[in-house]
């Protein structure tokens, strides 16, 4: 599994009027669990988007292993993104598909056989404790359950990296703890976890590396950190 490296990265918006990230130098080693913390608008989401090439740096380079994301051709981006599993605050589930179909979709797009889908999806759903909800639609689930579906979908392709952007933003404390436990478990299985959040409780619960961002700059990087702003 490759490392992720930021070298002198700048990201500007609105014709360079707004600097979302400034001079970011960062190395995330394979298999690490990293929490990126900061206030709203600090640049956490922009930083994660640069990792899976949803955004491109204005200056500097972002490497995934030896690949510079700037060099990836547009038509190869969907294939590059299959290295990452992504989870968001608003879940981003497909509303017209059942829990099973939502998770299966990630396998369908890469051309997995129907047999493989029928074998893999129930395994992942039981891992997140949602096997019995397979036939339900997203609007029939609680926030915590929706996030577990999103997590299951992110995991199904066994990606090298899981990027979770405010995954507990819409969840109660108990559900948040469940999600963080699942992320820790996935990390133990070998995946790199990048967690962007301003949820103090789950950062402290994880007890892993914490990178603090303020106004687009890294202001803290602690190996076994606590949420301090």
């Amino acid at each position: 599994m490759p490392n992720i490296k930021f070298v002198k990265v700048e990201k500007n918006y609105q014709d360079n009027k707004f600097n979302a990230l400034q001079n970011i130098n960062l190395l995330i080693k394979q298999g690490e669990f990293v929490s990126i913390v900061g206030k709203s608008g600090a640049g956490k989401t922009t930083l994660t988007k640069l990792i899976y090439a949803e955004e491109m740096p204005t200056e500097g380079d972002v490497f995934y292993g030896k690949r510079n994301i700037k060099d990836i051709k547009k038509k190869h981006l969907p294939y590059f993104r299959r290295n990452f599993g992504t989870v968001f605050q608003d879940f981003k589930l497909l509303p017209q598909k059942t829990v099973f179909e939502n998770v299966a979709y990630a396998l369908e797009v890469i051309g997995s056989s129907t047999d493989a889908i029928l074998e893999e999806v129930p395994k992942i759903l039981s891992m997140v404790d949602l096997l019995e909800e397979s036939d339900k639609y997203p609007n029939q689930l609680s926030g915590g359950e929706k996030q577990k579906v999103a997590l299951a979908r992110a995991l199904i392709n066994r990606p090298d990296v899981i990027i979770a952007d405010e995954p507990t933003g819409n969840l109660d404390y108990i559900s948040s703890l469940e999600i963080i436990k699942l992320l820790l478990k996935i990390n133990e299985l070998g995946a790199t976890i990048i967690l962007a959040t301003h949820d103090e409780a789950i950062v402290n619960k994880a007890g892993k590396r914490v990178i603090t961002i303020e106004d687009g700059k890294i202001v803290g990087d602690q190996v076994k950190g606590k949420y301090v702003i």
Binding site: P78, Y79, I110
Partner: peptide, 12 residues
């Protein structure tokens, strides 16, 4: 939905 599809690696 298109954003979601792109995020899970669906080609255009």
């Amino acid at each position: 939905e298109f954003d979601v599809m792109r995020l899970v690696g669906a080609s255009n």
